[in-house]
């Protein structure tokens, strides 16, 4: 459990866990996200996190994809929707993302790098 009181997302093939870390919060993705319509599962989850992050004035969100083996383009869209919620915020409400990618999973380096281009200056990528 996390201090936000937000339940983790557990589907048949994927788990998305939210946890507190010293300088913010961490969201850990594992398994395969390849459902036909991931929006009803992930968009409300990401929205809850986004709202709580703003409410509690947290400035750092870590997204760890290193254990996520597959993410379809509909899943990418749910992340895009989250990230593009941050870009129009006033400077005092904005928060930063750090994306952790696994160099052994080919799509991560390419697809996750592109996410940083959606919000220049707000996303840092670490490739392990």
């Amino acid at each position: 459990m996390n201090s936000f009181g937000i339940d983790n997302v557990i589907t048949e093939k994927a788990t998305v866990e939210l946890m507190d870390i010293a300088n913010g919060i961490k969201v850990t993705f594992s398994g395969d996200i390849d459902v036909q319509n991931p929006e009803p599962i992930f968009v409300p989850f990401f929205e809850q996190i986004h709202n709580k992050v703003i409410e509690t004035n947290i400035k750092y969100v870590e997204l760890d994809f290193s254990k996520l083996t597959f993410l379809n383009s509909s899943g990418i869209k749910t992340l895009i929707k989250w990230i593009t919620k941050v870009t129009p915020l006033p400077p005092d409400k904005k928060y930063r993302f750090k994306i952790i990618a696994n160099s052994e999973i080919t799509w991560q380096e390419t697809s996750l790098k592109m996410l940083s281009m959606l919000a220049p200056g707000l996303i840092e990528i670490q490739i392990k």
């Binding site: 383009s73 990418i76 869209k77 895009i80 697809s111 996410l115």
Partner: peptide
């Protein structure tokens, strides 16, 4: 093109992403 499709996807509300082909070409 992929970046443009990502920006468009952010605004889509129909459940589709229309990202797949652009993703294939980019990757």
């Amino acid at each position: 093109v992929y970046l443009m499709k990502m920006q468009e996807a952010a605004l889509r509300t129909d459940g589709g992403s229309q990202l797949g082909l652009a993703r294939i070409r980019y990757e």
